[in-house]
Amino acid sequence: MLLIAYDGSQSARAAIDQAGTLLGRTGTDALVLTTWEPYQDTLTRSGAATLGGAASMPTADLDEQVSRHALETATEGAELATAVGLRAAPRAEPTTGSPATTILEVADEIEAEAIVLGSRGHGRVASLLLGSTSHHVLHHAHRPVIVVPSDCVAGEKAARAGDTSRATPPTPARAA
């Protein structure tokens, strides 16, 4: 079982796409996870909870909306994953600290064989600079993590498709 962290971003879509290329043939099971933050936590984090009255604001309705939206996002991700050959199910989960903590908790719960993460590719510099969630997961996971570059992969595909401005000539490897 794979755990795919999915927030609906282009980076996360690329992660699903690549997971499909890698594992779609084998029909691997995948849980597509979208995390959401309870509004009370957002208020606390932003300092607004210390303002008079904010602490007692009714947040249940907002949380209901946010959690429903998260499940819609996860469902969209699961559909993408199914389209690339994975046997995917969606799940939305409220964060208990940060998205990374929740991702790691769910990975442990389902005993994921690997966690799949998108990485924000960094413009023309074709390198994998990690977002904070990917960075945290990577450094705290005790299971395999697949980091998928997004813009970089897209850029490379564009290069192959004819935009030679990004392409570099292959250097022969000194293979024995």
Binding site: L128, H142, P144, V147
Partner: peptide
């Protein structure tokens, strides 16, 4: 938990393909 060695760090930092760590 993971600590990236120089090789894994270098690969992760420059690869344009998925990296399984």
């Amino acid at each position: 938990s993971m600590v990236l060695g120089s090789t894994s760090h270098g690969v992760l930092g420059h690869a344009t393909r998925p990296v399984l760590l």
